[in-house]
Design a protein around this nucleic acid. Structure first.
Lengths: 217, 217
DNA sequence: CGCTAGGAGAGGATTAACCCTGAGTTTGGA
DNA sequence: TCCAAACTCAGGGTTAATCCTCTCCTAGCG
């Protein structure tokens, strides 16, 4: 069979996105990229006005509406569209979080192009694409029951704001000023964030925040 | 005129690289990607065994031999090959440093594909491709005479090792142990690194190191 | 009404980070 | 040979970060 497969590509780097599009269409004449967008919001708008697609290639890290948010909304509104995440960092927490949002597969940014084709085919035929490496990570994450730590969805808005400011050379006193709160309250946020994310120092927090895309570099 | 232009592409992300290659060859039939590599070392090997190229598209941030090193060597051994840097972060320091290594142009990862073509054409015809935005950054960097700060090439090996370890939750005492040095020496590295890079705190150092690719996330 | 949970904040203590000055040692040159 | 620069390390002091306990207030709920 050789039915046309309609694909959407969402990535904030235009050059990477254009490259992927060009690559996909050269992989198989039945692949057609019908929607391109540089973030989840734009994609959802286009999807509404436009036609439907079969597979969505979604970059995990984007500034405006990232892969997590987009996947979450997609699961609710368009559960039939299979999502394949293209991700730079394959930390377990992100993967587990994504899987909860019904994502059908993961692929790294540094894989062979042929693997992209395999992933798309698998996702169309079997409905999913999980590599052994991914399964391994999953098992590892299940064996370490960090259930209380493997998502930062439970962080408060204030805590998130604090984290943004903590990734800087400001002191906590300065941050307290900026947030119009007492330094003691900031200290409370710090303790709470450390506990929730299982961290021991502000440097660790900064690195975690950057790595998970919580803070943009 | 429509002479064949031979292009090299160096980027550590296979998927991005393949995309770029596919894109380039679809931009103009005279463009031919004859060398692909995932880091500078591999590229130099291939270049030696293989033929020469006209233009090199070089990713700035790579784990093994990054854009800086590669550009430096290229300038010495193959000054005729024009280098176009593809860069994520366009901080002034990196750009100034690259220009010293004879790089002919910069392009962001989030530009329109047509701009890639313009860049390649400009670099072949005029010999360079400098956008207004880049020129602006340059002027800004000249107006702020941070000559002693705008490169981390003067960082010692020991200082680099220290920076790696400082981007963690280890205390300086622990880092001293790991490097088999006195905590006081580590304190000296810290002061020296802060001075050279114009930083005020360890968090600032961690962020700087990650942003400039000094430390991988 | 009383109970509970969570956010804001205080007091006080300890440790790590930051800063300055100086001293001994090695090393590459002039 | 002798100097300067760079590396290693000490003493000692200040500030920021971390940790613990505890109060007050408010909102939700049986």
């Amino acid at each position: 069979m050789s039915r046309l497969i309609k694909i959407g590509v969402v990535d904030d780097h235009k050059l990477f996105r254009s490259g992927i599009v060009s690559l996909i269409e050269s992989l198989d004449p039945n692949y057609q990229v019908s929607i391109e967008a540089n973030n989840g919001r734009v994609f959802l708008d286009l999807l509404e006005n436009d036609q439907s697609i079969d597979v969505l290639l979604l970059d995990a890290n984007m500034p405006i509406m990232d892969g997590f948010e987009t996947a979450e909304i997609m699961q609710k509104s368009y559960p039939d569209i299979r999502i394949l995440i293209i991700s730079m960092n394959d930390d377990e927490e992100s993967i587990v979080r994504m899987l909860r949002f019904g994502v059908k597969g993961f692929i790294g940014k540094d894989v062979e192009p042929i693997e992209l084709k395999e992933a798309i085919e698998a996702i169309m035929n079997k409905g999913f694409y999980y590599t052994d490496q991914l399964t391994g990570k999953l098992i590892k994450s299940i064996q370490n029951p960090f259930d209380k730590h493997n998502t930062h969805s439970k962080l408060t808005d204030q805590e998130l704001a604090f984290i943004q400011l903590a990734c800087s050379e400001f002191t906590y006193v300065q941050i307290a000023d900026m947030m119009c709160l007492s330094p003691k309250t900031i200290d409370g946020y710090r303790a709470s964030v450390f506990e929730k994310l299982n961290l021991k120092s502000r440097v660790g927090l900064a690195i975690y925040a950057i790595k998970t895309g919580l803070v943009k570099v």
